[in-house]
C-alpha cells in the first residue's frame, strides 16, 4: 500500500497559481466535459469487464460494482459516515491547532532574532525531514485514540506553518522596516503594522498546504494504530483483501479532501490581498 509521501517541504511563494475560472459553458468546455465523462465511464467499464472476464483477480483489484455496493452498505449502516466524521475531526482539529500556533510561533521569531538564530539548525533539520516519519513516535506518546491523530496532524502542520510564516516574515522588504524606523516606530509597531500583514499571504499558502498535510497525518496515524476512522477502515480492509472496501474508503477520503481543500481555499482567497 503506497503511503502518500510528504517529503521535504519547500516554502511556497506568496502567490497563488491562477486557474482560469469557467464562466458558463463554452463549446470548448462542453467538449472537455464530454471527453472526461467518456474517459471515466470507459475506464470503469473496462475495469468491471476485466474482473468479470477473470482477466484480473477481484481480491487484488476490487471491482466498480463491488465498490458501489460497499459504499451503499457503508452509508446505510452508518459505519462509513462515522469513520469519515472521525477522520474529518482529527484532520480539522489538528490543522487548526497546528496552523494557528505555528503561524504565531513563526511570526514571533521575527521579534526575537536571537531565538531565531539559535533555532535555525533545528528549523533546517525540520524543513528537510519527511514530517510523517514522526507519526509512530506520536502514537507511542498519545495512544491509539483520536488524540494521537490530532497530535500528528497538529505537529506536522505546526512545523510547516512555523517555517513558512518565519520565512515570509524574513522576506519583508528591509526598506519598509527602515521606513518604519525613520517614522520612529517601535519594533512592535513595525511588527504589527508591516511584518504581520506582509506575512499573511505566506500564512494563507501554508494553510492551503497544511489541510493536505493534516489529513495525511490523521490517516497515517490511523494506519499505524486506531480503532476507527477512514485510515483504519482502509488499512483493516486491506489486511482482509477486501479491495472493494479499500477503494470505498479511498473514495470517501478523496471526497473529504476535496471538501476540506475547498473550504480552506475560500479562507486562503480571503486572506490574500491583491
Amino acid at each position: 500500500m503506497a503511503l502518500p509521501e510528504t517529503g521535504a517541504t519547500t516554502v511556497p511563494a506568496a502567490s497563488s497559481t491562477k486557474v482560469p475560472r469557467r464562466r458558463g459553458f463554452s463549446v470548448f468546455g462542453i467538449r472537455v466535459l464530454i471527453y472526461q465523462i467518456v474517459l471515466l465511464v470507459g475506464f470503469l467499464a473496462l475495469w468491471e469487464y476485466a474482473i468479470r472476464a477473470e482477466w484480473l483477480p477481484v481480491y487484488l483489484y476490487g471491482q466498480p460494482s463491488g465498490i458501489w455496493r460497499e459504499l451503499v452498505k457503508g452509508v446505510e449502516s452508518g459505519a462509513l459516515l462515522r469513520d469519515t466524521w472521525i477522520t474529518a475531526q482529527e484532520t480539522v482539529i489538528g490543522f487548526i491547532i497546528g496552523s494557528v500556533a505555528g503561524s504565531i510561533a513563526g511570526l514571533a521569531l521575527w521579534l526575537s532574532p536571537t531565538t531565531a538564530a539559535v533555532l535555525r539548525p533545528l528549523m533546517v533539520a525540520l524543513n528537510g525531514l519527511p514530517k510523517i516519519a514522526l507519526a509512530p513516535l506520536i502514537v507511542v506518546w498519545f495512544g491509539v485514540g483520536m488524540e494521537s491523530k490530532v497530535a500528528i496532524a497538529a505537529i506536522i502542520t505546526f512545523i510547516v506553518a512555523m517555517l513558512t510564516s518565519f520565512a515570509g516574515s524574513q522576506e519583508v522588504d528591509t526598506d519598509y522596516i527602515k521606513m518604519m524606523k525613520s517614522l520612529g516606530a517601535s519594533r512592535l509597531q513595525t511588527f504589527r503594522m508591516v511584518v504581520v500583514p506582509a506575512t499573511i499571504p505566506w500564512i494563507a499558502s501554508a494553510f492551503r498546504l497544511n489541510i493536505g498535510f493534516a489529513m495525511i497525518g490523521a490517516v497515517v496515524g490511523e494506519y499505524i494504530s486506531a480503532e476507527a476512522g477512514l485510515g483504519h477502515h482502509v488499512y483493516y480492509s486491506g489486511t482482509l483483501y477486501n479491495l472493494n472496501a479499500v477503494w470505498g474508503g479511498i473514495f470517501a477520503l478523496m471526497l473529504l479532501a476535496l471538501f476540506l481543500d475547498a473550504i480552506v481555499g475560500l479562507v486562503e482567497r480571503r486572506l490574500k490581498w491583491q
Binding site: D173, D175, M179, S182, L183, G184, V194, A198
Partner: peptide, 26 residues
Amino acid sequence: ASGHVGYMLQKDLLLPWRSVIDNVTL
C-alpha cells in the same frame, strides 16, 4: 531614528494592504 526626518525614496514603499488614506496616515 525618531521621526524627526521624513523621507521619500525611488521606491514608493506604500503598504499594499492599506488604502491611499491609510498609507498617508501611517
